[in-house]
Computed example of a mutant assay.
Amino acid sequence: MNPIVVIPARLASTRLPDKPLADIAGKPMIVRMLERGREAGIGPVAVACGDPEIAAAVREAGGRAVLTDPALPSGSDRVHAALAELDPDRRHDVVVNLQGDFPTLDPAGLRLVIMPLDDPRVDIGTLVVPIRDEIEATTVSFVKAACSFADGQTIAPALYFSRQAIPWGLGPRWHHVGIYAFRRAALDRYVSLPPSPLEQRENLEQLRALEDGMRIGCARMEHGPFGVDTAEDLERARAILAERGGTRRQ
């Protein structure tokens, strides 16, 4: 595999305006994400920007930025659009869509997300972490993945994703971490599809892929990053990275 990492980012945010430019330990959050991507060491890293202000911050930090149409409906669409400029010759056959709001991410997670693609039947790789308590299991903003890992295995097929606590009954439950590794052809196919019924019902884009028959493989992590969605999340990320000197989780 020859991966490329693309971070989609735009300023519009209902809960935390201008989030990509929020200062975290002396650098904009989008620059912190650029650093996390580089630390993974799996391939070149670029930012698909919905706004020129984000592109300016990325370029000032020595990063590669591509301006995309701010009206694009999703991060995956933004990543796909940026690839036309980043890799017109299609040298990269795997595209990692790295969310722009995980500044405390351990870069090992990016190396892990491509592992499901070792199976040629899998179209998309993603990450899950164990659900620790009932509050997490029943909080609708935490997306759950229905998957089952055989003893000693770290990869399992995703059967469904939901905002509800799934599956029912005793046993492990899994919290989905919204980072994806697409085969290039799978990303082409995904963005060509209209929103699907279950995607619209659950407000979860990954269900579009499942409803179209694509296979998603989940790689398990013991500890996942938290997404910065609120002012409280931002202060938490600032405290963590300030304590660590701006570096990733050790």
Rank of each mutant, 00 (worst) to 15 (best):
A65C: 07
V177C: 09
M214Y: 07
K27T: 04
Q200S: 14
D133R: 01
P70K: 11
A81L: 08
V140K: 14
A46C: 08
K144R: 13
D212V: 02
Q164C: 12
P70H: 11
I240H: 08
R64C: 09
V47G: 00
I54V: 14
P130R: 07
R184Q: 07
E134D: 15
I240T: 15
R64E: 15
V143L: 11
W168K: 13
L204E: 06
G43H: 10
V96P: 02
A84H: 13
E35S: 05
G63D: 02
L204T: 08
D212F: 11
G213R: 14
D123S: 09
E205L: 15
A146N: 13
G213T: 12
G63P: 02
V94W: 05
G62N: 08
R238C: 15
D51Y: 09
R201F: 13
D123Q: 04
F142Q: 08
D188G: 08
D151W: 12
R15I: 00
P167V: 04
P73S: 12
R173S: 02
S148T: 15
S141A: 13
L98I: 06
C147V: 15
E39F: 02
V31M: 05
I42L: 10
A156H: 08
R163L: 00
R220F: 04
A146S: 14
C218Y: 07
E35G: 04
R91F: 13
G224W: 03
A71H: 10
L170G: 06
R36H: 04
G109L: 12
A71Y: 01
L207D: 06
V228G: 01
K19F: 03
L241C: 06
R64P: 05
L241Q: 01
G224Q: 03
F149K: 10
L210E: 09
